[in-house]
Amino acid sequence: MADAATLPVLDLNVLIAMYGDDSAETITLALSGFRREATHYVQQLQNAGQHNIRTDSARKDHAPTDTALADMARLCHSLKSMCGLVGAAKLMQLCMTLEQAARQQDLTTLQNELLKLAEVWPELLSQLNLTLLQHGYPDV
């Protein structure tokens, strides 16, 4: 598994290769759609982390249910594919780790990796906004 620190936040070459198109129209369509959908997924992941995935003593009696972990794995799986389409490599890597931890019910890894989401997502969002602006997308 690649070291997340060395991965690009957003690699447009991946997007261009996946869509087979380097036009500004396709780039802005893909990135604006990704930004909208990924925001929704990240919010759900963060909510799940706050309400279900806590290993501290205050929540020891409230272990996440199998359903909560399955939901988290499903969210990460979907977000991972979306990241792969647009070249959001760092978030994709994080989603892979989170999905695996959720499937293995590894709560410690899950909690630690969810904390990284609070760094990785704003960094990606900033890069998305910048790239959209550079390609003439008006609504940034």
């Binding site: 996946m18 198109d21 396709t26 893909a30 759609g33 594919s81 389409l85």
Partner: peptide
Amino acid sequence: DDAFILSAYQRML
């Protein structure tokens, strides 16, 4: 079930 993925296929085709 993912609308974003469907929109990507639509764009590709």
